[in-house]
Write a protein that binds this DNA or RNA. Structure first.
Lengths: 194, 194
DNA sequence: GCAGCACGATAACATATGTTATCAAGTTTA
DNA sequence: TAAACTTGATAACATATGTTATCGTGCTGC
């Protein structure tokens, strides 16, 4: 949530660092569950090393919603803010180094921040950035074919394709693993050197 | 943006009412453009009567992104907050009564609001609500078939189906008008009394 | 080192969806 | 009021995508 934005709003780093001592460092293997679908999020999660996905269970199989990497922060926002059960699971994909900041300290941190000049404006800008991100995600489904969405990933977020197992990417794109395989082989024919 | 939330956060109404005198009332016919794709949003829009859609142009045809009705407020958030060109057009579907509140007064209004106790918490809750909404929109594409998405509309937002021309709904669902017609006729066979 | 498992490619077939064209019924406009 | 446009249904055909099954490879745990 808030600390998706360390790069974009460097003035936040001082606040963040102040709360470093309250964070719990964890080294976890791949496929570690950091938050389970149905339980209430108690921690803001920061990724020092590794990678993480969020997914939900749909009639027996996983549907991946989003991927996170080094220096990304995340939470199950609605669950974390409103103390309600999370609609998705957060799980590591690779062995990872994770920091957890408990809810109470996040509340304090936000309280600190609210004395920062232009904090409201900052918050609105963050809101706009995130909303634009999620709107783009679903606009892409209205506008693009799965093949185009895969190509968007290739050009705009190639690290995802490099590091994430293909069946997670398939469910993120909204297609079957078989079809994603077909898309790749079709593209490979067009670009034999890649 | 902010005043999506008049029902949920009634304490906001006093602030809203204070700025009523600065709003410009307009009665407009159907298919009036309130904000054009590519131009910078200068007004927050409130709908007293009628209905509105947002869409963007994709290789010649419209893709509808969202629908709004009586007592909804909206803006092209990223454009409005960050003074950048809007990625979509805002257009009335029916003859409508619209109020426009210029950017400068919205800024004042937010400034007023920021002295409200718990304003930060309020803003975060609003953020969570909107983010959850947009995430659900795109999760629905990963999880559901177009037929299921149509049924979701039927059960959860029937007013959309009642008031909005079908080809707008088709593009919102991400299918062709022909296929939406097929979906409807298939469902009609299962439910001959509807 | 072997047995099992996770991951990915491919084939064959079934189903879903897009495209183009045509028709019909309203609605708007001149 | 007639002509033009908008909206929606349907048919026929092409393409995209899902499902199930099979195979291969590499990794993991014992």
């Amino acid at each position: 949530m808030l600390f998706h934005f360390r790069d974009k709003f460097p003035q936040l780093n001082a606040y963040w660092d102040k709360y470093l001592p309250f964070q719990k460092r964890m080294e976890v293997p791949a496929k570690s569950v950091l938050l389970e679908e149905g339980s209430v999020s108690q921690n803001y999660i920061f990724i020092e090393k590794g990678c993480v996905r969020t997914f939900f269970n749909n009639k027996g199989d996983d549907k991946t919603v989003q991927f996170f990497f080094e220096n990304d922060g995340l939470s199950s926002l609605d669950s974390f803010i409103n103390h309600i059960p999370s609609t998705f699971t957060i799980e590591t994909i690779e062995p990872s180094i994770i920091y957890l900041l408990p809810r109470q300290y996040v509340a304090q941190l936000i309280d600190d921040l609210s004395h920062e000049p232009d904090f409201t404006s900052l918050l609105l800008q963050m809101w706009a950035i995130r909303q634009t991100h999620y709107m783009n995600e679903f606009v892409s489904f209205i506008r693009d074919t799965p093949e185009q969405r895969y190509q968007n990933l290739l050009t705009q977020r190639p690290h995802i394709i490099q590091r994430v197992p293909q069946h997670y990417i398939a469910s993120y794109l909204g297609v079957s693993t078989v079809h994603l395989s077909r898309i790749k082989s079709k593209l490979a024919k067009g670009n034999p050197h890649f």
